[in-house]
Amino acid sequence: MKALMIEKLNQAYTAEKLALENLPKLAQAATSSSLKQAFETHRQETQQQVSRLEQAGQQMGAQIQGAPCEAMQGLAAEAERLIAQHQRGPLLDVILVASAQAIEHHEIAAYGTMRTLARSSGLRPVADLLEQTLKEEKATDEKLTMLAESEINPAAMQQSV
Rank of each mutant, 00 (worst) to 15 (best):
M1C: 14
M1H: 10
K2A: 14
A3C: 00
L4N: 03
L4I: 06
M5Y: 07
E7V: 11
E7S: 13
E7I: 02
K8D: 14
N10F: 09
A12N: 11
A12V: 05
Y13P: 12
Y13T: 11
A15F: 02
E16V: 05
K17S: 08
L20N: 13
E21M: 07
N22Q: 13
L26A: 13
L26H: 11
A27V: 14
A30F: 05
A30L: 03
T31G: 08
S34W: 15
L35C: 13
L35S: 06
Q37I: 04
Q37K: 15
F39R: 07
H42W: 05
Q44L: 13
E45M: 10
T46Q: 06
Q49A: 13
Q49D: 12
V50D: 02
S51H: 09
R52Q: 08
E54M: 09
Q55M: 14
G57D: 10
Q58T: 06
Q59V: 10
Q59H: 14
A62T: 12
Q63G: 09
P68Y: 05
P68G: 07
P68R: 07
P68L: 03
E70V: 09
E70Q: 08
E70T: 14
A71I: 09
M72L: 02
Q73R: 04
Q73S: 08
G74L: 07
L75V: 06
E78D: 14
A79Y: 00
A79G: 01
R81H: 09
L82H: 10
I83A: 04
I83R: 00
I83H: 03
A84V: 02
Q87N: 05
G89I: 03
G89P: 01
L91F: 06
L91D: 02
D93Y: 03
V94H: 00
V94D: 00
I95Q: 02
A98M: 07
A98K: 11
A98R: 06
Q101I: 00
A102D: 00
I103A: 01
E104A: 03
E104M: 09
H106D: 05
H106T: 04
A110E: 12
A110Y: 05
Y111L: 10
R115G: 03
L117E: 08
A118W: 02
S121F: 03
G122V: 00
G122D: 03
G122M: 01
L123G: 01
R124I: 12
A127T: 04
D128V: 14
L130C: 08
T133D: 07
L134M: 05
K135W: 11
E137I: 10
T140D: 08
E142S: 15
L144W: 02
T145A: 14
M146L: 15
L147P: 13
I152S: 09
N153G: 00
P154F: 10
P154W: 08
P154N: 02
A155T: 06
A155E: 05
Q158Y: 07
Q158A: 03
V161F: 15
